[in-house]
């Protein structure tokens, strides 16, 4: 049983690390600011969530686990609010998102 939990936790940790890297790769590959935000949210949700889940499985039923749960909840509530404020501020400041109808090869800077 303990072995099973261990394996599950390692799968979560490795997957979490993988998704974190994927999100930040997306942060560099995406062509404009708004699309980069989508990539970053992969890191924020799935990457962070899986790493925290894996560590929770390692911690077992202790205070440490409660703290991890709290950390997860914190991110769960705070990160979309921050992302929304960021997008709104960018749009209010006149940063136009590059939409699909435009020429995809034109890179904005």
């Amino acid at each position: 049983m303990a072995g099973l939990v261990d394996i599950a936790s390692w799968i979560c940790l490795v997957a979490g690390g993988f998704f974190s890297i994927v999100g930040t790769i997306g942060l560099n590959r995406m062509p404009d600011f708004f699309t980069r935000m989508h990539a970053a949210s992969v890191t924020d949700t799935l990457g962070a969530g899986l790493v925290l889940l894996g560590l929770m499985l390692q911690a077992g039923w202790t205070l440490v686990m409660v703290k991890l749960v709290f950390l997860g909840l914190l991110m769960f509530f705070a990160s979309p609010a921050a992302a929304h404020a960021l997008a709104k501020a960018a749009l209010a400041r006149g940063l136009k998102p590059r939409l699909h109808e435009e020429d995809p090869s034109s890179k904005r800077s």
Binding site: H38, S41, T45, F76, S79, P80, A87
Partner: peptide, 14 residues
């Protein structure tokens, strides 16, 4: 709005 933002691929701008 938060649920939309939280799912990757969509962001509530306003």
């Amino acid at each position: 709005a938060n649920s939309i933002t939280l799912t990757p691929g969509t962001i509530t701008v306003e």
